[in-house]
Amino acid sequence: MPGRPNLLSGKRKYLFGLILFLFVSIITVAFSLEGNDDFDISRREVLLRKIGHELLLQSGDNKSRVLPVKKIAENEYLISFEHDLTFQPDSLVSTTRRLLSQDPLARDYVVNVLNCSNSSVAYGYAISQNKKDDIITCMGRAQPSACYMINIKFKSTDGHTAKNVYLLGSLPFLAFVGFLFLRSVKPQNTPPKEEQQTGMITLGPVLFDANNRKLIVNGQTTELTGTESRVLHIFALSPNETIERSRLQKEIWEDEGVIVGRSLDMFISKLRKKLEPYPNIKIVVIRGKGYRLEISA
């Protein structure tokens, strides 16, 4: 059956390309998530610096500097100032809430105002994504001018977790696609190279001339029809193996667009009669599965 190996090869290339495309797509999306996280974290540091800037303005200081924002832990930052300042808790809460609302990763966080001298907490509060869980105290009480640092600790984000879940969650899908790929490329028995070139296949004492649709024994020939030859060729490629009925129907009649169950039975019956003179070759019915070409020594 010329063209069949090329068709299978094309399917293999298609499936391999599909798996490769899916793998590259998953890796690309996963690492784009990480890239987005890096951008959001850099943006967060700018927002923190702006919080410090607005606190100085609210304190009446428009000249001194906000010192570089320090990242002291994975999700913890420290804002410090060049000079002393005073602050209103109401304004501090309002400012941090307004500016950090622009940070997509800042859903829950704790703010502590620390004394520079001993890092004791002068004032603190907690903001949650659910406002009912906010913890805010001492509103309306102005704090004295002193050296303060603003410590802001964010709840761990799900960015890296999401990336890991995305990667790990995709593995079963890739494994499933790979399983389908391996099934589709399951090696099939093929005749020796010289038989493929000449179309001559040895079936026990019988020589099957697939190109000329003949069975040859001791110089005597038995003619086969085109369909009989195609059916026998499928059996000849997998001798002593069960060939599913559905496979025979698909490979023989798929191109014609119509598959009739009785047609297969009819051609199998005709082929059996032509093989009757050769007792070492039999087409056996495997109930509920299909047929098998049995070749004995």
Rank of each mutant, 00 (worst) to 15 (best):
I201Y: 01
I216S: 08
L171Y: 15
K186R: 13
N189A: 11
K193P: 03
R183V: 03
S170V: 05
K214P: 04
V206C: 09
V217C: 08
T202I: 09
F181W: 06
L207K: 13
L174W: 12
P187M: 13
P172Y: 11
F176Q: 11
R213M: 04
F179H: 07
Q196N: 07
P191N: 04
E194D: 09
G199I: 03
L180Q: 07
N212M: 06
L215D: 03
T198I: 05
P187R: 13
V217L: 12
E195W: 03
K193Y: 12
T202P: 00
N189G: 13
P187F: 06
L174K: 13
L180A: 07
V185Y: 06
I201S: 00
P205N: 08
F176R: 11
N189I: 10
A210E: 00
T190P: 00
L207I: 14
V217F: 04
S170G: 13
G204W: 01
L215Y: 01
E194S: 09
F176N: 09
N212F: 10
N211Q: 11
L203A: 05
V177D: 05
N189H: 10
V206R: 08
P192Y: 06
G199N: 06
A175T: 15
V206W: 07
V206T: 13
E195V: 00
P205L: 09
S170N: 14
F179W: 11
V177P: 00
Q197H: 05
P192T: 06
I201E: 02
P172Q: 15
I201L: 07
F176H: 10
L174V: 10
I201H: 01
F179A: 14
G199D: 12
I201N: 00
K186C: 13
P205Y: 08
L182P: 02
F173M: 14
Q197Y: 02
T198K: 14
P187V: 12
E195T: 02
T202F: 01
F181K: 02
M200F: 11
D209Q: 12
F179K: 06
V206M: 10
I201P: 00
Q197T: 11
Q197F: 05
K214V: 05
T190S: 07
T202C: 03
T202H: 09
P172K: 15
P187K: 14
E195C: 06
T190I: 12
R213Q: 07
I216M: 13
T198V: 07
N211D: 14
Q197I: 10
T202D: 02
E195A: 15
V206D: 05
N189M: 10
P187G: 12
A175Q: 14
F181S: 03
L171A: 15
P205M: 09
F179N: 09
N189L: 12
E195H: 05
F181L: 07
I201G: 00
P187L: 14
L174M: 15
F208Q: 01
L182R: 12
M200A: 09
P205V: 08
P205K: 08
K193L: 13
Q188V: 14
V217E: 11
T198Y: 03
F208D: 01
I216W: 08
K193R: 09
Q188W: 13
A210T: 12
F181T: 03
L174S: 11
D209A: 11
